[in-house]
Amino acid sequence: MSADHPSAAPMVRFENVRKSYGHLTVLDDLNLDIAPNEKVAIIGPSGSGKTTVLRMLMTLEEVNDGVIWVEGDPLTHMYRDGKLVRANKRHIRQVRSKIGMVFQHFNLFPHMSAVKNCMEAPITVLGLSRDEAYERSRVLLDMVGLGDKLDHYPGQLSGGQKQRVAIARALAMRPKIMLFDEVTSALDPELVGEVLNVIRELGEAHDLTMLMVTHQMGFAKEFADRVCFFYAGKIAEQGTPDAFFGNPQNERTQQFLSAVLEAD
């Protein structure tokens, strides 16, 4: 894959990306290409920088060094007089519109009903009419199995239902890339399945590139096209689920997998 031709450009490219907080380096010279429609599972021990990858792509965190590209366009930077400079707000907003994110703690708007949560950004950001936004949100909530909960407030929903609203809310912006940040970690075990099912259907039915940070090894194995294992700010190992889980090469990977699978 080469970035020279837009048609052949990866959907997402991390190029020499570095991120640190003070002395603590969270990500060290990250290079990662993700193809259109690819499903990538990001796993690793806590503190390995895996969540930071998603947060930088969503522009919730700035990169210290390096460039993130989306469909061949720079996200963190922009061209001025033929040179790459730090992106301004307008540029970020424009490129960011291709990306949606679902959070570990849902982050639903507590003062809005489920359907209002989904309608808010399409109206204020995309300029849709209320009717259009409502129709779009209704269809999406129906798709995640909450067609009968449109007017429920977040406080009236279970964790799994909240997370499904959050997925519908992100989809209402018609992103090309969806980021899932430990979306089942805050859920009771019996509610994990309903959320994973929605993500599974999404992967089959939609033309979406997906990045997920997850602790669900079974789901990663079954769903992902590629698994990336992060350790100490670097990708320690990556590969197809079969290769990764079946025949891990890296010692760290082996340790991590045996610890995680033992716990299961």
């Binding site: 969503m58 522009t59 919730l60 907003r93 959070f103 708007f109 950004a121 950001v125 912006m173």
Partner: peptide, 13 residues
């Protein structure tokens, strides 16, 4: 803070 992040992820100003 999650409310700010969610708004940002939805591309609100």
């Amino acid at each position: 803070r999650g409310q700010w992040e969610a708004s940002r992820a939805l591309n609100m100003t």
